[in-house]
């Protein structure tokens, strides 16, 4: 949310805010492993930056520009793939048209992640 006292303050710069209790530090499953698709997103970040298409700063810049609504409503790795994708397009790895065509092809493969990522 826009800080009325300082419109220059950006939503992600949250140090010092009051906020509720630290969530779920002892919850069962807090120590969960991530799912395969999330681990793949993480790997794509490392690979995309290692190959020089973008930097962690570019990843953060897009995450910040996606805004607070995305922070509240999307999961961590949902936000990451959105930012990785935008950085890869900006970095010239592929075009928006390439992506549109590929996403249509992928979603036509099946109803579940397992079906749609089979063979890849």
């Amino acid at each position: 949310m826009l800080d009325p006292k300082n419109p220059a303050r950006r939503w992600h710069d949250m140090g010092g805010d009051t906020a509720g209790p630290i969530p779920d530090m002892d919850a069962p499953g807090e120590d969960h492993d991530f799912s395969l698709w999330e681990k793949r997103v993480d790997a794509l970040m490392i690979i995309g930056s290692a190959k020089g298409y973008f930097t962690v700063d570019g990843l953060r810049r897009v995450l910040e520009d996606m805004g607070e609504d995305a922070f509240e409503k999307m999961t961590y790795y949902e936000r990451w793939i959105a930012s990785i994708n935008q950085n890869l397009i900006e970095g010239g790895a592929y075009t928006t048209a390439d992506l549109a065509e590929k996403m249509a092809e992928v979603s036509a493969r099946g109803k579940t992640y397992g079906d749609a990522s089979a063979g890849s």
């Binding site: 698709w37 992506l99 590929k102 992928v106 979603s107 579940t112 890849s120």
Partner: peptide, 15 residues
Amino acid sequence: LSYWQTMEIAVRELL
């Protein structure tokens, strides 16, 4: 299959 999972598969295959 979610929209974002679809994007992950597509990005990975494009790369």
